[in-house]
Amino acid sequence: MLADYARCLAAVIEDVGLGPAHVAGLSWGGTVVLELYRHHPELVRTLVLVDTYAGWKGSLPPAEVRARVEGAERMLAVPVEEFAPTMPGLFAGRPSAEAVRLLSVMSADARPRSMRTELTIMAETDHRDLLPEITVPTLLLWGELDTRSPVDLVARPLLGAIPEATLVVLPGAGHLSNIEAPEPFNRTVREFCLARS
C-alpha cells in the first residue's frame, strides 16, 4: 500500500519532466518519500526528511507504536460529522492563531478512512534496511522540541544510518517545524537544495 503512494509521487515527478527532484516529506510524508527512494532512486536528487520516521515500527519502541495505534483508533471512532483529526504534540508550545487556522484548513479535508489507512501504514512500516542504501545528499530537518519524533530517539539514528545525511535542528520548534519556524525552515531547505542543484 505504501508503494502505491510512492508510485503516485513518482508519476508527478516524471510528468514534470525536469529530471531528478529535490524531494521533501514531513512526518508521514517523509515515510512516503523514503518509499519513493526505495522504488525510484533515479528520480531523487536530494532527500529532505522533516520531523519524520523510518516508519513508526522502524523508529519507535513497540509500546509507543501500540499507544499511537490505540490513540488513533479512539480518534477515528467518533461519528464522521464530528471527526477532527488531531494528534498530541504537534507544536512545541501554544500555537499561534494563524498556525491553528492553517492546521484546521488542512485537517478539514482529512477523511477518517484515509487517516486509518495512513496510520496503519505508519505503524507497520520499517525502513531501517533502506537507510544505509541511500546515496543522495539527505537533509534531516528537525524541531528541537519535537515530541512526536524526538531528535535523540528518531533523528540521530537516521543521521547515523544514512551515509550522506546532515542534521539541522531548529531551536524552539516542535513536530510541525515548518509552521512554527517558517523562516529558518525555508532558508535551510533553500540553501541545501541550491547547493546541490
Rank of each mutant, 00 (worst) to 15 (best):
V65F: 09
V16I: 15
G172L: 08
D15A: 15
S149C: 10
L103M: 15
G174I: 13
P132L: 05
P137S: 10
A97Q: 13
I179K: 10
G89W: 01
G29F: 10
D126A: 09
P132S: 12
D51F: 07
S149R: 02
L141K: 03
T147Y: 02
A99Q: 14
A72V: 12
T147K: 07
P79K: 00
A72T: 15
L60N: 04
R68I: 02
G58V: 06
V32W: 03
R94C: 00
E133C: 11
R111S: 13
R101E: 14
T86A: 01
L2K: 06
A6R: 04
E124H: 09
E183M: 13
A72W: 01
R66G: 08
S107N: 14
L158W: 00
V100E: 14
R148Q: 14
P163Q: 01
G25W: 01
G25L: 03
L47I: 12
T31L: 01
L102D: 11
R68Q: 12
R148D: 03
A165L: 04
P171Y: 07
T147C: 07
E81K: 00
V23D: 02
P182M: 13
A11C: 08
V50M: 08
L119W: 06
A110R: 11
L159N: 00
H22R: 12
E70Q: 14
P157E: 05
T31P: 01
A165D: 06
G58T: 12
S27T: 07
R116W: 09
A99G: 02
G25Y: 01
E35I: 07
L9T: 14
L176Y: 07
P85A: 02
L141D: 11
L167M: 05
I179L: 15
A3W: 02
A92V: 04
A77T: 03
D146K: 07
V32D: 03
L26W: 12
R196A: 09
T52N: 05
D109H: 13
L76F: 01
S114Q: 11
M106L: 13
A165N: 02
A11Y: 09
R113A: 15
L76Y: 02
I134M: 06
V100A: 07
L43F: 06
A92W: 04
L60C: 05
G160Q: 03
M122R: 09
L141E: 13
V23A: 03
L34Q: 15
R45E: 12
P157Y: 04
G172N: 08
H127S: 13
C8W: 12
V105R: 13
M87T: 10
V168M: 00
V169A: 01
A77P: 00
L103E: 05
S177W: 06
S59Y: 04
L139R: 05
P85C: 02
T86L: 00
R156F: 06
G93S: 12
R116Y: 04
M122P: 00
